[in-house]
Amino acid sequence: MENTFEVVKGMIAKKLEIDPATIQPESTLTDVGLDSLDTFDIIFDAEDKFGIKVPNDQVNVTTIQDVASLFDKLLAEKIASAK
């Protein structure tokens, strides 16, 4: 499966209509031009894409890598609970 960071990068680039190459793991959400509303929108799309549910108390993310790591963690939990 594609690296989660790459998936998130693609989603953000598509939403903001920017060059994906400008998005680095350490870029903050603000750096790339995402406000809090945009972030909720990305999370909404990611929930569909990954089949996960992001709890409200876990949406404290600053960098793009934070977002990717959060999704990875929830994906891992989902796989673990399915076993």
Binding site: L37, F40, D41, I43, F44, E47
Partner: peptide, 9 residues
């Protein structure tokens, strides 16, 4: 189960 995030706005 979920609505789009901008529904209210």
């Amino acid at each position: 189960s979920r609505l789009k995030p901008f529904t209210v706005l």
